[in-house]
Amino acid sequence: MTPLLDVRDLSVVFRLRREGDMPWTPPRQLQAVRGVSFALQPGETLGIVGESGSGKSTLARALIRMVPASGQVNWAGEDLLTLSRARMQRHRSAIQMVFQDPLASLNPRMTVGQIIAEPLRTHYPEIAAPEVKARVQLAMDRVGLLPNQINRYPHEFSGGQCQRIGIARALIVEPKLLICDEPVSALDVSIQAQVINLLAELRRDLGLSMIFIAHDLSVVKHISDRVMVMYLGRVMEAAPKRDLFSRPDHPYTQALLSAVPIPDPAKERAKRMIPLQGDLPSPMAPPSGCVFRTRCPRAAARCAAEVPALSGEGRLVACHFPGPLEQAA
């Protein structure tokens, strides 16, 4: 099966200028994403997890050219990164995005109807106003909003409802791929479940592919088919959901999983914690070799010298000493 989206060696470098730098001082470089490759099958959901600053959101934005990137993003037989603006525009309706902060992602001066209609009016300007309105109302109904609320403003809705508006806006142009950038992090837990279930239901009914970014592993576990773990702009491990959660091979994944609380005090106490020391190193000066070595319990001399390649069959691990937790300990 040809993948829907085939990303090869995607890197994002930000050039930063400090306040007071002279025009000729070379800007400092920040590698937000380096050498990320993955493929997404039609109908598949890829979960991307990682700490803040691991490059998850930047990766998502690089796919739709919101940030300058190098590498290849193959979509429908074309490399999105090399397309002209006009040609890229044709693909934009097929890849839509849902944002983190539900209220902030809606223009406060526009009515819900205008907000949801915007992608439609951008990509299909020939559709007449009554038809646009009818479609907006259908989309609102589809995401669980009352269509008679079409003239209300975003501030009159709750966080969960605002996120539904955001989802309706993304779906009105019937995309093939939906990129969800932490769509539930800003919501209450009870509302999170509703929004996640709505996304899962829409994915099933509309045959959507999804890239689902989150820092909450339980959320990712619920919705993804495959999970990719990122650290400091690199992929640490990528595997089918079941494998990754039942038998993580990378020490970073193991540490992440051990930090998920279990809602059972007995099990929670018996659980083995793998404490990660220190903070994420600065992406301006990443560690040599394996970027995770500064906090890795298994780190050895080789880790500082060589960058571990992402390798494996079916499940991919970037580590010199991969293996299940018990073995390595």
């Binding site: 934009r92 839509q96 995005m97 944002f99 902060d101 809606l106 526009m110 951008t122 990509h123």
Partner: peptide, 21 residues
């Protein structure tokens, strides 16, 4: 703001973003 980013992601032109958002 995120709503500007949302408009850019959908491919709304710069002119329309300035006028409408």
């Amino acid at each position: 703001r995120e709503y500007i980013e949302a408009a850019q992601a959908t491919g709304v032109s710069s002119f329309r973003i300035i006028i409408r958002h």
